[in-house]
Amino acid sequence: MRIKKNNLILIFLVVLGLLIFLHGVGLLRPLENFILKSFSSLNSRFYSWGNSFQASYQEQATQESLLAKIDELTKEVAVLTVASSQEQELREENAKLRSQLNFVKTNNFKAVAAEVISRESLIESSGAGQDIIINKGLKDGLAVGQGVTSEEGIIIGKIVEVKDHSAKLCLTTSRGCKLAAAIQNSTRTQGITDGDLGLTIKMNYIPQLEVVSVGDRVITSGLGDKIPRGLVIGKVIEIRNESNEVWQDATIEPLVNLDNLTVVTVIIP
């Protein structure tokens, strides 16, 4: 009995070692890709069922009609914010181009829609904020560093790891998910945003001389080569400004609920 059990353990260890080895040398890749691609739609279906349960679970906690109205208005505000931000950018760009007649630049970006199929566990995320996994990957033109937006066009994160048919992206509220950003204020303050405990976004090391106000919109500055300029990150909700310090910090609130994402768009330069 003991020998039989030891044999079983040995067989398991051999199979385990073989799987790891075959995966490491890439021999398992065709099978892995086939399995992942075949079950991708099932994954996204399961995820959307779970997400709809989450939406209904949240609605039961408060008055249903008020929540629906808030949800509707929040989406409308997000869309209007994006439109307004884009209009402001276009106006400023137009003014610049008028003064620089020799300057010509065109940005051609492709957008790939993807479905969210999973959310990282808190153990895996080590408390930094839960990353999400989508069902598009290298074969669809995705690469590390590309920006990802919600359905309303608000940037929600960027790709941090990519496989052939899936990709992992960090949300803007996750610690370590840094974006080159600019505040739409009078001085066009530039900086780097970083997530804060999976809840909000922070922009630190803003010079004291920069005038930042609550309500200012924060957009991507386009200084990174893969994320275009002008994508809305959020709006400033709090400023920490101590007179005896060199820098000031801003807390930024994302304009979409990052817990309810089911479909996202990857911006491919």
Binding site: N43, Y47, G50, I117, S121
Partner: peptide, 17 residues
């Protein structure tokens, strides 16, 4: 396994645990 990876991870806390 598919259920654990996709469905359960999308549930609100504490169900996602």
């Amino acid at each position: 396994a598919l259920l654990q990876f996709s469905f359960i991870s999308s549930l609100p806390s504490p169900f996602c645990q």
